[in-house]
Design a protein around this nucleic acid. Structure first.
Length: 565
DNA sequence: CGACCCTGCGCG
DNA sequence: AAAGCGCGCAGGGTCG
């Protein structure tokens, strides 16, 4: 049932089989690191759940050996969830002093960097053999004794399979055509030049800007110098932000905005970026499950979650392959409707664009209004058009808006809120508490009270959004897990020239909060699209049972990411 | 010189 | 302080 793997102090691996109650069923087996992949491959057909400290440390060697595991339990990720969850607050695990399971993954994985070698040598970071086991049992207990164990079991499984997917996507990489990327850059910026020098097009724009501002020497790339130069020319700019510059009337504005746009392209996704991050036609970023407190993923290594539309044309399927690009339409409002059991809001999104449905119900006049009002409800807008439209939304959807309001009030009090599957928000820090306490002091000034109120509202907007964003992240994990599981069953038609077994069949290559990309042989693209669509419905049922809410997708089978809207 | 903060902007 | 959440990254600037 469970196979618990841990490393011993001398670099060997211990594997202990546990039954469904967490009790060992046989003596531990001792393996070398070299033997481990074959051992995993031999055990995998029985469908075990592998238990280990950190998937990002165990996966690379397995994937390099062409081996994938179906299920795991990532102790570090699950620990973070269980430590903070409202549902397990009475557990032994939640009450313990912070220890090695609370430390950042970076610290634990940083052995080769050198900087932390001293810490490692002087500490006890290499776990004793029984530490991994003890932690697993504490987690097991915490879940078993909580009020609704089913929610957390699903969350921990989803979080852990997410870690497997993150490692697999890193390994497989996103198909990337450097020749197309180069053409695209050349068309925008001019021919490639050495790193650190301005391409032709930027140089021309810089010249125009200098002429318009009548200043040939200032450094365009310094915000401070640029701002001063603008002000010397009589422009009433208070910052160099694009949206603020747009409001100004002056011949320098047009070339300046163009310069900023292209300079950004060059520095964020230019040739230097391409040389650094694209290897053998693949982009291999690190994905970091649970990086945001809401449960959303983070990522690093080339900024994959900020991939601008400008360069998506370089993401192109291999010859004979396709990209299936799918994103969940209006995911967060749909999540909110289901969370609050707001049947009217759910009905507005049935079989249609949810914002269009709100318009059709006569709540507001335009799709744009519906969207800005919904975002305002979920983010806590108070002013502007969004603020003005909120009362209409509240009348039509009292349950949904009631939920976001309640979440905001909880945060303003310093209370925690919890997602659908049981991830809870962090408590505000000490300085937050201190500021609140100060406002209650008899000697408090108006300033103290204002500061405390404003800070409380800030935290309220965070908790308001946490419930929705966090539950949406859970839906997305379940969706992706289901996609992975179904794609797995399409094996048996491997392309022989592929490096590893799973990259020879349809596989996930990208994930962006509510959007996935699957790279697939052409012949299977239709089936992949169906799998992704079915998986969305399955994820909805996993989170919300029979509650009648649709999770619509926009899915497209394309050669290039740029073709998908 | 590195470590850190700030600004601005890309994504959802 | 962009009305309103969550991130990561690059580049300039400052400090020790």
């Amino acid at each position: 049932m469970y196979l618990l793997a841990s490393r011993t102090g001398n670099g060997e691996i211990l594997v202990t089989a546990l039954d469904a109650a967490g009790a060992p069923t046989a003596p531990a087996e001792r393996l070398t690191q070299l033997d481990f992949p074959a051992f995993v491959a031999a055990r995998e057909p029985a469908g075990p759940r592998w238990v280990w400290d950190d998937t990002s440390r165990w996966s690379p060697a397995l994937l390099a050996a062409g081996i994938r595991v179906r299920r795991c339990h990532d102790l570090r990720l699950c620990h973070a969830i269980l430590r903070g969850s409202e549902l397990t607050r009475a557990s032994e695990l939640a009450g313990r002093a912070p220890g090695r399971w609370d430390r950042a993954a970076a610290l634990e994985a940083a052995v080769p960097q050198g900087a932390t070698l001293f810490d490692l040598a002087s500490g006890d970071d290499e776990p004793a053999d029984d530490d991994t086991m003890a932690e697993f049992l504490r987690q097991f207990q915490a879940v078993a004794s909580c009020p609704e164990p089913g929610r957390l079991r699903l969350l921990l499984a989803a979080e852990s399979v997410g870690a497997l997917i993150a490692a697999e996507m890193h390994f497989a990489g996103l198909p990337w055509r450097t020749d197309i990327h180069d053409r695209l850059l050349t068309a925008e910026l001019g021919p490639r030049v050495a790193h650190g020098t301005r391409p032709e097009r930027l140089e021309q724009l810089a010249g125009r800007i200098r002429d318009e501002l009548d200043d040939q020497v200032f450094n365009l790339d310094s915000q401070q110098e640029l701002l001063k130069a603008l002000q010397r020319s009589g422009l009433m700019a208070t910052s160099t932000r694009a949206w603020e510059l747009k409001k100004l009337e002056h011949p320098v504005i047009e070339p300046l905005l163009e310069y900023k746009k292209l300079a950004r392209l060059l520095s964020a996704n230019g040739w230097y970026w391409m040389d650094t991050w694209i290897v053998d036609g693949r982009f291999h970023p690190e994905y970091v499950p649970g990086a945001a407190t809401t449960g959303r993923w983070g990522a690093s290594g080339g900024g994959p979650l900020q991939l601008p539309r400008q360069v998506r044309g370089a993401v192109v399927a291999d010859e004979g392959w396709k990209l299936v690009v799918a994103d969940a339409a209006q995911l967060e409002p749909r999540i909110l409707a289901a969370l609050s059991a707001d049947t009217a809001m759910a009905a507005a999104g049935r079989d249609t664009d949810l914002y269009a449905g709100i318009v059709a119900s006569g709540v507001v006049e335009t799709r744009d209004q519906a969207k800005v009002a919904m975002l305002g409800a979920m983010y806590g807008a108070t002013t502007g058009e969004s603020g003005r439209l909120l009362p209409r939304l509240a009348r039509a959807y009292p349950r949904a808006l009631g939920l976001t309001e309640a979440a905001a009030r909880a945060g303003e009090r310093g209370d925690i809120v919890t997602t659908r599957l049981g991830r809870s928000s962090p408590r505000p820090g000490e300085s937050w508490q201190a500021t609140q306490a100060q406002a209650y002091d008899p000697a408090a000034t108006d300033g103290d009270e204002r500061r405390a109120r404003s800070q409380a509202r800030d935290w309220g907007r965070f908790t308001r959004n946490f419930v929705v964003q966090g539950s949406a992240a859970e839906w997305a994990l379940c969706w992706m897990a289901e996609v992975r599981r179904e794609l797995w069953s399409l094996r048996g038609t491997e392309a022989p020239d592929r490096p590893a077994a799973f990259a020879a069949t349809p596989h996930l290559v990208f994930f962006l909060h509510d959007e996935v990309i699957v790279h697939t042989p052409v012949a299977l693209a239709g089936e992949v699209e169906q799998i992704i669509t079915r998986a969305a419905a399955t994820a909805g049922r996993l989170l919300f049972g029979d509650f009648p809410v649709d999770f619509l997708l926009t899915a497209a089978t394309v050669d290039s990411y740029a073709e998908a809207k």
